[in-house]
């Protein structure tokens, strides 16, 4: 485990802030009716995607979870988040050329898809892992999901296959205890997703998903294992979503409002603030630097909004050519 440099720590911090600002932008644009599709906020989940995907190489593969529609997994890796905003506004400059609705794709950095039907990520990631293993260049696949997603059969089929064939896949589960309106304690008898991994002889580790460094460290181990050819791992990050499942929907558990106390208690462990306090104590951050980073992120997201607005819509004449590869 290498010591994280000041620069590494600031990269994580900056990524958290940018993720949050862009998430807030998408939330506002959704409320203003300017997104031409739905949006699932990552508010509360930022540390998981940022912490884990920071460890991905440019030639790795990465299957995103739907929280933030790709933002937490793209920003730390240098993918320009304005292409996320533009895609949601249906513009040709979006990362899917403005034809996908909400799907996140980035061929250059191995973001090969995101699932409309939850669960595909597990099995597609097995395929990315298979390709990575065949390539023999030490590439790996990252697969992000929620705790609801692991209730689909594909999770179990993928675990089994990846373990049997020692595929280089790192599964990161963002366990926020909910799947849409339904609390998972009422739909599974298994409290910890990590225990499911163990059933398939896959190492499963539980970490604090509000602590970006804890996520980073756990992922580091899993990544090392995968790159060495020792097979898959699963990291279960305990986290919380601060907003409704998707924008404009009621915020309920079953059919009653979610507990305000529960939300408030998780708010006290805001992943961005926790890390900020830590870095302030370590003197990596100063009040002035915090302000500067926030201002830069504000400027960047304002520019992204304008860029998206000013971008043209796709040319519909292209659509028929998108159906079959030549």
């Amino acid at each position: 485990m290498k010591e994280l440099s000041k620069q590494d720590l600031l990269h994580l911090y900056r990524s958290l802030i940018r993720t949050r600002k862009f998430d807030q932008l998408n939330v506002r644009l959704a409320a203003e009716g300017k997104l031409l599709t739905f949006y699932h906020s990552a508010h509360g989940h930022e540390a998981v995607g940022v912490g884990a995907s920071s460890l991905a190489r440019d030639d790795d593969y990465l299957f995103i979870h739907h929280r933030g529609h790709g933002l937490p997994y793209s920003i730390p890796r240098g993918i320009d988040p304005k292409s996320c905003v533009a895609e949601h506004m249906g513009r040709a400059t979006g990362w899917g050329g403005g034809i996908t609705g909400f799907h996140a794709v980035d061929k250059e950095k191995g973001v090969l898809s995101s699932a409309g039907t939850i669960g595909s990520g597990f099995v597609l990631s097995a395929g990315y892992g298979l390709a990575a293993k065949k390539n023999g260049r030490g590439q790996i696949a990252f697969c992000f999901s929620g705790d609801g997603g692991v209730q689909r059969g594909q999770f179990h089929e993928a675990m089994n296959l990846c373990a049997a064939w020692k595929l280089p896949v790192v599964f990161v589960v963002e366990n926020n205890g909910m799947a849409w309106f339904t609390p998972n304690c009422d739909t599974t008898a298994v409290e910890h997703v990590a225990d499911l991994a163990k059933a398939y002889q896959v190492p499963g580790e539980i970490v604090d998903g509000m602590d970006v460094l804890a996520v980073y460290r756990a992922t580091e181990k899993a990544v090392e294992r995968a790159r060495k050819g020792e097979g898959p791992s699963l990291i279960e990050c305990k986290t919380f979503r601060y907003r409704p499942h998707s924008e404009g929907r009621p915020d309920v558990s079953h059919y009653e409002p979610r507990s305000k106390e529960e939300i408030a208690s998780w708010m006290e462990r805001d992943p961005v603030r926790l890390f900020e306090e830590k870095l302030l104590k370590k003197k990596v951050l100063t009040a002035a630097l915090i302000e500067e980073i926030a201002r830069e992120a504000d400027e960047e997201s304002a520019a992204a909004e304008k860029f998206s607005f000013d971008s043209p819509f796709p040319d519909p004449a292209r659509l028929p050519d998108m159906v079959y590869a030549p």
Partner: peptide, 15 residues
Amino acid sequence: AANSPIAGAAMEKYV
């Protein structure tokens, strides 16, 4: 509907 996946956002109306 056209013989195509259903495009998203502003492109849906062309399918």
